[in-house]
Design a protein around this nucleic acid. Sequence first.
DNA 1: ACAAAAGTGTTGAGAGTACACCCATGC
DNA 2: GCATGGGTGTACTCTCAACACTTTTGT
Lengths: 233, 233
Amino acid sequence: MAADVDPKGVRPAYSLPAVTVDVVVFMVRGRALQVLLIKRRSPPFQGYWAIPGGFVEIDESLDEAAHRELAEETGITGAYLEQLYTFGDPGRDPRMRVISVAYLGVIPSDRANVVAGDDASEAGWFSVQNLPPLAFDHSRIMECAIQHLRRKIRYTDTGLRLLPELFTLSELQAVYETVLGEEFDKRNFRRRIFQSNIVEEAGGFRTGEGRPAKLYRCRAGIQNEVRVTRLFP
Amino acid sequence: MAADVDPKGVRPAYSLPAVTVDVVVFMVRGRALQVLLIKRRSPPFQGYWAIPGGFVEIDESLDEAAHRELAEETGITGAYLEQLYTFGDPGRDPRMRVISVAYLGVIPSDRANVVAGDDASEAGWFSVQNLPPLAFDHSRIMECAIQHLRRKIRYTDTGLRLLPELFTLSELQAVYETVLGEEFDKRNFRRRIFQSNIVEEAGGFRTGEGRPAKLYRCRAGIQNEVRVTRLFP
DNA sequence: ACAAAAGTGTTGAGAGTACACCCATGC
DNA sequence: GCATGGGTGTACTCTCAACACTTTTGT
């Protein structure tokens, strides 16, 4: 339910938890799934790497807070963000009770240039295969995010949001293979993508080594749920 | 990230949002999907029906808060609860900023006896087809919960948690049909249940009208994910 | 014996999987 | 002309969906 004011008066401040957002943003570069971290420049966990995030302001929504903190601390704007899970165990921050609403985000590699902000001495991308020790309970949040991304890319169009507006089918396949850590048959992959009807030809070609590849884009009006086959379809 | 203390000092109380849990508990009775509501006895929305819930105490986890508030306001204990989504738009409570972590719960109909608690003048079950106007943004939370339950029952063992320990396959089928609002072929339904291997024979029979029906129980060690077929299986 | 619910198999269609070669370009 | 990556079709297997009658009990 929404709050009832304490009948004896306004709830005292010391009994109120702080609320933060934490934003786990992924990118695929080359053949690596990478995640955005910042280096903490104040205690506790000074010098540790951490998931970007911070306090929710009193007059902004949670989504707004997630976008704002991400932009402030890393310079990243326009990422696709969605709420992941809320972590609120007492003791997860040694200083005070902090309840953190975690967000999962993805961004195309061509918009992944970071600029460290005020609260962070540094911001950078790390391969999920090779993460540094993280501050607070951020390893747990990270595991949760990776698991969720892998699940989500299997049955929604999240894979497309990891690519620039125009992309080739080989690039798309590489994204899926990188995130999921398995390889797919080229012909079956293409058949599935076409059947699911999430892309359309953009008209151009990408040249380079070998035969030029057709460019595709995300079909307009694609919602999130591409397809799920279930216990009871 | 977890919190950084405001460099200028402790964050003042007026800028801290309150944190609550809201618990949407479902039950199937007869051929109706029902949800547990309480009647508010103080303003705002005095006399309106609302989703049970309340403040998170400073030293309890979110899960604990959800179970505690549910027990305090409705007398229901031992429900299966899981976190659903966190609703935190400014203005969702007219008095103050309230961020609410919503939980989804299910309970067998034989444990659904309610006892109204302190904060509620009444507690009762309502068919989701026929809900009263709800307080705050609870209609939105309710929609989200119903949608999530319908999705979840399709690919996990949530259906079993809506039944007593022992049940017949016809009762199980009735639960699925009630929650999803569609009918299934009896032979195909049974084949699916057996293939997914989530139940085992309990050894007894339920008698009544017609031929007695074998009793089943949830197989030990069943986790949540029964099966998902995906874009890339 | 009849009413009421339980239980049981088969067939056809569609989706998933495995698999190998030709094509268009740059150098 | 050759190296490089792009692009295409088919056969087999398995899963899903549609469909009707027999069995066991209570009255």
